[in-house]
Design a protein around this nucleic acid. Structure first.
Lengths: 339, 339
DNA sequence: CACTGGCACTCGGGCTAAAGGAGTGCCAGA
DNA sequence: TCTGGCACTCCTTTAGCCCGAGTGCCAGTG
């Protein structure tokens, strides 16, 4: 049905439209690409491509524009990965190497992605469930109050205060801290509830109440934060390309403020470092129907920690963006593995 | 020069223009407000107000629009504080009361402000310099590596890793922790460098190297984070009111991504809970010339911790916005004082 | 002296009409 | 199977026009 030349034509249409933002006609196509045939022939091919739903014309006497389906085919079969320029590689290293802690890694990554791709960047914090406990610290604030600080191997720090049912002294705190860490240090967060299930019962009656209060708050904090955090940056790139959003950028901005939507978008990505593209009407969320998202999962080693990506108009440079997102994801994974 | 009726006219112009977004003419004015005079008289007053620079007409044969100077006069002398509705009061309490930790307080505050005022919300984290040390925790990660966790009385948590020049054991860590906390717990961050100036020298030679490495990293972290953090939310409110920004919202969005600009904006606010308004050309930053910012400093007790506010078009409901921002600032201060 | 009604004037927005042009579909021929 | 030619479509731009809101000014009035 679609021979090689038709695919060439589609590829050329996508490329031209991405760079000019104007419907591309048969004449311009043969001039800018050496297809070796006449405009009339190209017109026939275009008619076939339109028949199949890969391109469309905004109105009768206009050139053709790729449809969502056309972009999809382009991404899946017609584009070759564009290697990053050495300047880009250097930018990634320089940007991320001086990061101080996890917050810093995340905020630098957002800025980096936004700058590199010139689209809106979205970066998710490492998912708590997929991390392990590095250390649980108990700090005595008063005779009936503790602060819990949970540190994960990915650098996340969660803190919470506990009001105790009874008095507690430094000695008991440090005993409890030791016993807790013995059980959970190095364990995946996922297993912590199990690991601590019978801790309180094993405590001597005198401290049992306090111990179970601590455990309760700890477990609760793991659940509460299940709604994972996402950071967004480079939103001004949307207005720079405002003409690409026919219904204005408003719904897109609204979507970007819905953590839930973003998490769902990122959450459906695939294996570590593999780059996923979601185009236009493939989005589950109404307001994003005129956008595309390029995302990748990052991880340390083979463990997927979370995802990051960029959101832009459907008319985007897919090969370049995919290369950038993939490279950043790999680099972030490496950095988190080191720390 | 400007008698009471002229001020009444200006007030009426601002109110009408804020609600309709259309240049207001003399006839419409006398119809909607009971000024007790004829349109012709109002026209004379308008001419005087224009002469003084409080209003302007977009073009001949159009109504009048307040100028920056006009809004300023309105805010300073012509508006009365609009008390919050009880629904709004309830919203504030409900929104903020369940906050778990500082991050949560800040992110809830941003969402609350954005929702309440329907403008872009900007909230600054408590400034490190104005907080005190609650506790410094040292956690041994390996024989040559520690993690520092600094907890302030406002709930900020800063963490950093230290590579030590020599080996260290649990016992030494806990000694060092005790000595450090003895010196700095409860002290203002501001004084910490002084408090620790001679700590390393007082250490026994065997542990001196490690101790000074820890102190060095700690002090460095206090300086690095001097660039304070700001969180932005509700950016989609900008595009909702896109027509209020003649040169498109792009420069405004760009400004919102410049932490430095925002910090400077918020930083120049005044005493705790006092509400500050900056209008149009009073902004130091070019891109914000068509916006107004309403901000307030929050604090616990008499201590100013940092500022929060909203950014919107110059054409905004100043009395209502000022009331909301002030109320939220007071409430946030109270919450942080409690914890 | 302050206010009012009347009136001529200005100027932007919106509507319609016409011209221009890019691009298509189709057909006949190589 | 490809090509050149040609009629056709329809969007976009430009120009011209009218309409009306709103003003400034002036002469008149309590």
């Amino acid at each position: 049905m679609l021979d090689d030349r038709k695919l060439d034509v589609l590829r050329a249409i996508v490329q031209d439209f991405v760079s000019t933002n104007e419907p591309v006609g048969s004449k311009a196509l043969v001039e800018r690409h050496h297809l070796g045939v006449s405009p009339a022939t190209v017109r026939n091919d275009m008619a076939a491509l339109e028949e199949e739903g890969y391109i469309a014309q905004p109105h009768t006497s206009a050139g053709r524009v790729p449809t969502d389906k056309g972009y999809r085919l382009f991404v899946d079969r017609l584009s070759t990965v564009k290697p990053l320029s050495s300047a880009e590689r250097r930018a990634i290293e320089q940007f991320l190497d001086g990061a101080l802690d996890l917050d810093d890694v995340v905020s630098r990554t957002v800025r980096l992605l936004a700058q590199l791709t010139r689209h809106v960047a979205v970066v998710q914090y490492p998912i708590l469930d997929r991390s392990s406990v590095r250390h649980l610290e108990l700090i005595k604030l008063s005779d009936t109050r503790l602060m819990l600080v949970l540190i994960t191997d990915t650098g996340r720090v969660e803190q919470r205060q506990v009001d105790l049912p009874g008095l507690i002294d430094e000695r008991t705190v440090s005993d409890l801290r030791a016993r807790l860490n013995q059980r959970i240090a190095g364990r995946p967060i996922h297993d912590v509830p199990n690991d601590l299930a019978d801790l309180a019962e094993a405590e001597p009656p005198a401290t049992r109440g306090n111990a179970s209060a601590v455990v309760a708050v700890l477990l609760a904090s793991l659940v509460e934060r299940r709604e994972e955090r996402v950071v967004v940056g480079g939103a001004s790139n949307l207005t720079r390309l405002a003409l690409d959003f026919p219904d204005s950028v408003h719904p897109v901005l609204e979507a970007l403020e819905e953590q839930v939507v973003l998490i769902r978008l990122l959450g459906e990505a695939s294996r570590p470092t593999e780059v996923t593209v979601r185009i236009g009407d493939e989005h589950p969320y109404e307001g994003l129907r005129s956008t595309s998202m390029v995302s990748a999962t990052y991880g340390s080693g083979s463990r997927a920690l979370a995802s990051l990506g960029v959101l832009g108009p459907m008319r985007m440079d897919y090969p370049g963006t995919m290369a950038a997102v993939g490279a950043v994801a790999r680099y972030v994974g490496r950095i988190l593995a080191e720390s």
